[in-house]
Design a binder for these strands. Structure first.
Length: 227
DNA sequence: GCGACAG
DNA sequence: ATCTTGTCGC
């Protein structure tokens, strides 16, 4: 698939400029978090499978989950990921019985050239606290390490942190999405990491998405093979 | 102009 | 992200 047309890209840039202005960088969430959400999106041909899970903060137990399957309407373009993934995630969010206090997103928040990563985009659209957790850096650079954490700076602005969970592992990159301060975002991410280097809500959402994709490809095996 | 570039 | 088994390393 090719980049849409310049008009769509320009519209997306204008939208990102507005979204970045709507991002709330202070804590506007309960002081005692009780439910943490996690989202992920996976693909099967031209279908996007969006998942969202709710874990009880106290013990990271799964208490609700939902998913949606929609046709992909936007190609993957670095810096425009949100436009590709937001539809399936919002659709899944609406199906939840229990709404999370804060949502962990697989991707960047403020660590984005226009300060409008997927976590910011989703947080503004849902008017919900969100946090971006990414496995790679999209922009900016790592400043001085203090223990296992280092700020990420871009154009003279601190936009997130790199966190090394094991000396031999590559760091993960944490940035705020909406309605949380960076300090709170770091605290929440640290408390939700149990296995591996990703927060439990994101891992569970990722596993759910993969399970659904496997079932789908199994169900339509013959049909898909003839494409 | 060139390179880099979340999932 | 996805196509994919064994395999190198902690």
């Amino acid at each position: 698939m090719k980049i849409p047309n310049n008009f769509s890209v320009n519209r997306a840039r204008l939208a990102q400029r507005k979204i970045s202005k709507l991002v709330v960088r202070r804590d506007v969430l309960p002081s005692k978090i009780s439910v943490v959400g996690g989202v992920d999106v996976t693909y099967l041909h031209d279908l996007a499978i969006g998942t969202i899970v709710c874990l009880r903060f106290r013990d990271m137990k799964l208490i609700d989950r939902a998913f949606s399957i929609v046709k992909v309407r936007f190609p993957y373009v670095p810096t425009l990921l949100a436009f590709r993934e937001i539809a399936p995630v919002v659709a899944a969010y609406k199906l939840l019985k229990i709404k999370p206090d804060v949502i962990l997103v697989d991707g960047q928040g403020l660590i984005h050239p226009y300060r409008a990563g997927f976590a910011c985009h989703l947080g503004v659209v849902l008017r919900k606290p969100t946090i971006g957790v990414a496995k790679k850096l999209l922009c900016g650079h790592i400043l001085t390490w203090r223990e296992n954490i280092a700020y990420i700076e871009d154009r003279a602005e601190i936009i997130g942190v790199a966190l090394k969970l094991k000396s031999s592992w590559k760091p993960i990159y944490i940035s705020i999405g909406n309605m949380v301060s960076l300090d709170t975002a770091i605290r929440i991410v640290r408390r939700t990491i149990i296995h591996g280097k990703l927060p439990e809500p994101i891992r569970v959402a990722h596993n759910l998405a993969n399970d659904i994709r496997r079932e789908l490809s199994e169900e339509f095996k013959d049909f898909l093979n003839n494409l």
